[in-house]
Design a protein around this nucleic acid. Sequence first.
DNA 1: CTGAAAGCGCTTACAG
DNA 2: CTGAAAGCGCTTACAG
Lengths: 292, 292
Amino acid sequence: MLVADEVGYHPQAHAQGLASKKTNTITVVVPVMSNYFFIEVLGGIQDKLNELNYELAIINISPNKDTFSQVEHVLKRRASEGCLFISIHLSQQEWQTLQRYNIPITLIDEYFEGFDSVSVDNTQGAYRATKYLLSQGYSRVAMLSALETSKPIKSRIMGFHKAHKEAGIPFCEELIINGDTTYRDGFTERSGYEAMIKILTVEPKIDACFCASDVQAIGALKAMQDVERTIPLIGYDDIELAEYVGLSTIRQPMRDMGFFATQNLIERFENPKKAISQTIYTPELILRNSTD
Amino acid sequence: MLVADEVGYHPQAHAQGLASKKTNTITVVVPVMSNYFFIEVLGGIQDKLNELNYELAIINISPNKDTFSQVEHVLKRRASEGCLFISIHLSQQEWQTLQRYNIPITLIDEYFEGFDSVSVDNTQGAYRATKYLLSQGYSRVAMLSALETSKPIKSRIMGFHKAHKEAGIPFCEELIINGDTTYRDGFTERSGYEAMIKILTVEPKIDACFCASDVQAIGALKAMQDVERTIPLIGYDDIELAEYVGLSTIRQPMRDMGFFATQNLIERFENPKKAISQTIYTPELILRNSTD
DNA sequence: CTGAAAGCGCTTACAG
DNA sequence: CTGAAAGCGCTTACAG
């Protein structure tokens, strides 16, 4: 290998792959690419991969076609040693089907007992944010939600409920508000902006807000400025910018998740019989200006 | 192919690749992944690729090893039909060497006459921003720079100079200021924050500022708040968030660039003898709150 | 038009 | 320990 490099000879990837039955490639499967969560997780994956000698393939699942069949296609092609699935949500049954391919897989932001997984407790995150707001004396706390069929959103709504129930504060469905939910499942600045405008004008009785993502929260911040009314606001993710715009938020250790998931996958390559591990991070409440 | 899909048979990628000498894969080569410019460009690439039937491989050039040899390695492996190089800067000579591999390549954010390229006029962008500030009557305009060996930075510094010369305003080197330049070449919120603190404290005679990126500008905005002194500020990129934090900036059509570069590459697959095209976008000045 | 054979560029197990 | 042969799973050019 070293000599080859100097002389100028280089094995062709496909020939090598076919003959050796090793590809030296890890495939990352992801629903949408330009998304902060994905970017940060990917950063962590890269951090780990740079130490090793694997190549990275990224497969972007198209929203127009069936997710399961696209995912299955990736496994069938057998172009990589193993896969990292980021925010891919399938049914119990579908995951079971994928197990048959016998390819090492680590799930990120999803849970299934048959694969290694790394996730964050979404219910807990929303619970903490909501509880904090409620404990500060705000009784009409809105949740600025996103696509409701999204698994993390479902969990976060549960956490939102839980905090209300625990505090003994009555709660009505109208407190959960969506912006435009078509583009990027609603995890956009625009979606947050629009929803906050609604909250502040149509629904003026609200006195604090929990957002399903930091980008939405940043849109919401702008809305508050434009309408000239400010209410306490907590985001979700803790993207790098959050600190600089003074956004209180729920931190997900995205980079660590990517790093750890990759390490986990590599370990499975080396020891296929290793016990399956489920890692669940607990999100942390970060208080900054937006809740002052 | 269609039938195969239904029946459950699937060709293995490597065998197919070896036999057909076609890989159906496009490789994107990039120096650093978690970077807004890259993410947006990648979004555009995906938009185009989703229409077609290509797979995407992403190669991350490690900053610890020699860029050229890593890039060359990609070509030698012949694992893809063609490459998109994002923000990879090589010498004239090195690009020439790569031509010999006879693999279609489109350059993004770089220029070399032997390959198709899509870039933005960095000198022009910096010139416009600086000129605007100068025209508003500010005579001590600082430039918040990043890694000086970076090619775009060099051009932007030139544009900064040009605007001064044209306005007949004397100019001293100390007006160009760096923050922490080690991590991500200085294109970070932290770097912008630190540099702005310097500007506002150590160097109090400055009355406006042009930033080399929006993320730096967002750091700078925070610094101004913390120090309680505000000066007009223009960023660079126009990332999605910029609109929502009211940041004036120079817009680079990042998504379009990715889309167009991909289209260009595909066209070259179909017609290898096509004349080489150099596309240079002109960046646009977007005025928002930060210059009011 | 159909089907069996050759060959893609490697690795690896095996004969010497 | 060395080197030539077989084989990885496909595609394609070619004989029938």
